[in-house]
Every structure is written in structure tokens, then in C-alpha cells.
Amino acid sequence: MFETDKKLLNDFQRDFPLVPRPFAEIGRSLGISEGEVLEDFTRHIENKTISRIGAVVRPGTVGVSTLAAMKVPQEKLIEIAKIVSSFDEVNHNYEREHSFNLWFVITAPNESRLQEVLAEIENKTGITPMNLPMEHDYHLDLGFKLKW
């Protein structure tokens, strides 16, 4: 990966310029044109090395969320994962290597809907999700330092 490319990925995870032409400003700091910056970012988004350029919103700002985990018999994993993923409120669903093998994040507009989704998942799967809401956040999220 070229140096400029690394800088685009690493140095602009925060402090993306809040100016009328932010890509031109980034280009100025890297010695390339506005068009080249836009092209490079577009390519990174197309090949999914970056998921987006945008705002990272503080958890809990636009709703409530929780992490939940279930112990699912291996032979039922796909079937149960499908039920869990079918809820619009579930935005992450991972299979993990542990006796708690299905981990998912539920985000809802309010606490009562969140509890409702947990209860519906329990009803439809017969497995009680372990509810692990965030009590404190210890990470400031200044971006992730990439090393090559």
C-alpha cells in the first residue's frame, strides 16, 4: 500500500475537516488533488477497506442497545441464528468459539422495545439470551491505529 493511501486510512479516522471542501483540504495536507482524494476514498469504500466516512455516534444517543449471548446446540445454530438476525433491531450477530456461541447486539428506540425483542427471541428459540448491557464505556474511540 502506498504511503499516501496509508495516511488516508490512518490519519483521517478522526478530525475529518468540517469545512466546505474537506477532500480538497485533505489533498492539500497530503500533496494530492481533491479529485485524487475522492477517487482513493471511493476505491477504499468499493473494496470495503473502509466501511464509510462519517460520524461515529456515541452509544445510547439515538436509542438503547445491549449485547446478548446464547448457548445454542451446534446442530441448531444456523436455524436459531436466522431467527435472531430476522429482527431489524439486531444489527450484529456473530458465531463465536465458546459455550456461549451466538453473540448479538440489539438496538432499539427505547428500553421497553429492547426487552420485548429479548422476550420474543426467547419465545421463538426456546433459549434465554444472557443480557449484557453496557454499564460503563472505558474507550474514547479516537479511531484505530493501523500498522503495516
Binding site: L9, Q13, D15, R52
Partner: peptide
């Protein structure tokens, strides 16, 4: 309300 504005890298793809 916003923690940062910038490129959100995809760790897996990197």
C-alpha cells in the same frame, strides 16, 4: 453526541 468524524476502517479487510 458525535465522538469523531472520519474514515471508519474495516478491520477484517485490512
Amino acid at each position: 453526541v458525535i465522538r469523531r468524524i472520519g474514515a471508519v476502517p474495516n478491520h477484517y479487510k485490512l
